[in-house]
Design a protein around this nucleic acid. Structure first.
Length: 288
DNA sequence: CTCCAGGGATCAG
DNA sequence: CTGATCCATGGA
């Protein structure tokens, strides 16, 4: 991949395993919108427009410093996806198909706090509604970057909100979970900063101390923001598609599905999960 | 109208 | 311990 820096943007040519549509539409992040040709994402306290034509990708506005210090890691550009795809689909025609279906997916490295709040909101919810709630939450408590939208709120800003405030934003029964989360972060009962250097197993034990955070939400936070790429979050889609493609369609416990993924894909289970999730959701696999 | 969504807490047995 | 039920909300 060749990267060239211009006055106010950076451009990748010959981008390998990079498709901005697949990266954003695979359900790992919620703060983006498509405006004409380009996608606009709000992340890392910045607004970034990304426009892709073939294997040329332009990031703007973007300095060399921001690209090297922030976006390169955010978009996981230092990881060899061609190699990972080859490993996880070896002797596996099912995974070969999923990998070919959306070969441009990359696992983002998002901010842990935003990811944790977002996936608490995600439980028993659907993606368009999750995006709406997070957008309203940001507008209500985040710092504005223009007249229409704001950055994701800080912990301090969200600590001003009551359960009733969260309800008014449409969070429903998750409002009390958000309050518990913010309380435990404020009193350092759970310290997100320390999770990155912990084992996935230990970090997960910390995360599930928060009400509204169970195995699935914890796995998403670990996978999408804490670099634990061996996690295999099992939601309704992943459960369905894994049962359909690997368990001969028979109903299987989430725990058993997780063990299966860990054994089959090991340290790369998270990548396999994303290819399958995108494939299943796009093709509505397992849905009558 | 009912059913469902990137689940988890709580209750019943 | 496992399995059923409830939870807010809006779109299909």
């Amino acid at each position: 991949m060749k990267i060239t820096y211009y006055d106010n943007y950076a451009e990748i040519e010959n981008a390998d395993s990079f498709n901005i549509t697949e990266i954003l539409e695979c359900g790992q992040c919620f703060r983006f919108n498509k405006t004409g040709e380009a996608y606009r994402i709000i992340a890392l306290d910045r607004v970034l427009d990304i426009e892709q034509h073939g294997d040329t990708v332009r990031f703007s506005p973007c300095t060399k410093e921001d690209f090297e210090n922030l976006w390169q890691n955010y978009f996981d550009l230092n990881t060899d996806y061609a190699k990972i795809k080859k490993i996880i689909s070896k002797d596996d025609p099912v995974m070969q198909k999923a990998v070919e279906y959306a070969g441009g997916i990359r696992l983002l490295n998002q901010e842990p706090f935003e990811t944790l709040i977002s996936f608490i909101i995600s439980q028993n919810n659907n993606i368009p509604r999750i995006k709406g709630i997070i957008s309203r939450l940001s507008k209500a408590y985040g710092k504005p970057y223009n007249e229409n939208d704001s950055f994701f709120p800080t912990l301090e800003a969200l600590s001003k909100a009551t359960a009733e405030d969260f309800m008014a934003l449409g969070t429903g029964f998750r409002a009390k979970y958000l309050c518990d989360c913010i309380e435990k972060l404020l009193n350092k009962e759970v310290e997100l900063d320390k999770l990155f250097d912990m084992s996935a197993e230990d970090a997960k034990k910390e995360l599930v101390k928060i009400k509204g955070v169970g195995p699935k939400v914890a796995d998403c936070v670990l996978l999408f923001s804490l670099g634990k790429r061996d996690m295999y979050p099992v939601d309704v889609w992943v459960k369905r598609v894994t049962e359909l493609l690997y368990f001969d369609g028979k109903d299987t416990q989430k725990e058993e599905i997780s063990r299966f993924a860990a054994k089959k894909w090991g340290e790369y289970a998270g990548f396999a999960q994303q290819y399958l999730f995108y494939y299943a959701r796009s093709e509505k696999l397992g849905v009558q």
